[in-house]
Amino acid sequence: MEMINVSYRLKSPKFFEEDIDEMELDGVIVRPTYLSICQADQRYYQGLRPIEVLEKKLPMALIHEGIGEVVFDCSSNFNVGDKVVMIPNTPQGEDVCRANYSYKSKFRGSGFDGFTSDLVKLEPDRLVKLPDDFNMHVSAFIELMSVAYQGITKFSEIAITPKEVLGVWGDGNLGFITALFLKEKFPESKIMVFGKHLENLNSFSFADAIYQIHNVPQGLVIDHAFECVGSSASQSAIDQIIDLINPQGTINLFGVSEYPVPINTRMVLEKGLTIQGNSRSDREDFVGVVKTLEQNSQLFEYLEKLITNICEINTLDDLKDAFNKDYISRFGKTILKWNK
């Protein structure tokens, strides 16, 4: 049995097109309800990826952050109408490493179609049920929260020195979420946030201290660091982290750069530092985020501060307008109320 589905794919930078196809009725069929634009989506939309990457991956439906409602399930794991968060990482067989680091995995909105379609078909294990009382605007970017969650989980497993002072570099969305989750997981630790934009830093009301990167007090030290800057600015952030971190601390990298970033390996060796890379997430991280939000409902109040745009999407022009609004926003998340 099949049904008609419409996908909305980026054919070339700033140009979306509709694509009609037939969908087999198996697995779980979800109707997207709220989606969230990520910087990776913007890099495709604005044409900021290398031309060979764009030629290889487009046309493609964007967006890997989103939630929806179940409309069909032949697996009996869900009921019609259940609210679910969709997991974009899609393993393609067993591997010795986690699925989010496996070359055998495919990722929606990168290796194949994301969530900008009328319906999305997923395997049952690629969905996590949401409580009905969750803030759905905030829930739209649980995927981004899961990235911070998995990095913090890995950090907890490898850090061998005290966690009295934790530093977060980056005053954007991921820096905000990482600092917030660190404060929730390590309430006795002092959370310091280092950033460039004072107006962004002032939003980190839960942090113990905020510093502009050019105005750090003499003698300040940290035990462990979380780099959430990305791009070419990663270099100066990592340099500052290496200067301020105590011996045998961990540097947890989250920021993505299109270009190689030099690192002062002499000081990494001298201090015996551990550098850990973090990218994407998998099911256990989504489950962990949902459980964390259930147990700490006050987190929604902080996370709601990240929402700067809520755009209703009824046409392709609405989708273009949403991407343009998001592009000029220096801070916060753009949420798409998906009416397609």
Rank of each mutant, 00 (worst) to 15 (best):
S102F: 06
F141H: 01
P131Q: 12
V128I: 15
K83E: 08
P131L: 10
L122E: 02
S102H: 08
F115I: 02
A99G: 02
K121V: 07
Y101L: 10
F78T: 06
N77F: 03
A99E: 08
F107R: 06
M136N: 06
F107W: 06
N77P: 00
C74N: 11
F141Q: 00
D95M: 00
L122Q: 11
P124K: 14
L127H: 02
L122N: 03
R126M: 13
S105C: 08
C97Y: 15
N79R: 13
Q92V: 01
D125P: 02
D125H: 15
N79A: 13
M136W: 00
S139V: 06
N77A: 01
V147R: 07
D95T: 11
K104R: 14
Y103C: 00
Q92Y: 02
S117Y: 00
K121T: 07
V138C: 11
S76K: 12
G114S: 12
G109Q: 07
H137N: 13
D73V: 02
I87M: 10
C74W: 00
L130H: 09
V138G: 10
E143H: 11
M145A: 11
P131R: 12
N79F: 12
K106S: 09
L122C: 08
P88L: 02
F141T: 03
R108A: 11
R108V: 04
E94T: 05
T90S: 12
V138M: 07
L144K: 03
D82C: 08
I142E: 01
F134S: 06
P131M: 09
M86L: 15
G114E: 09
M136H: 00
G114F: 13
A148R: 01
T116E: 10
A99R: 01
P124A: 14
R108M: 12
R98L: 08
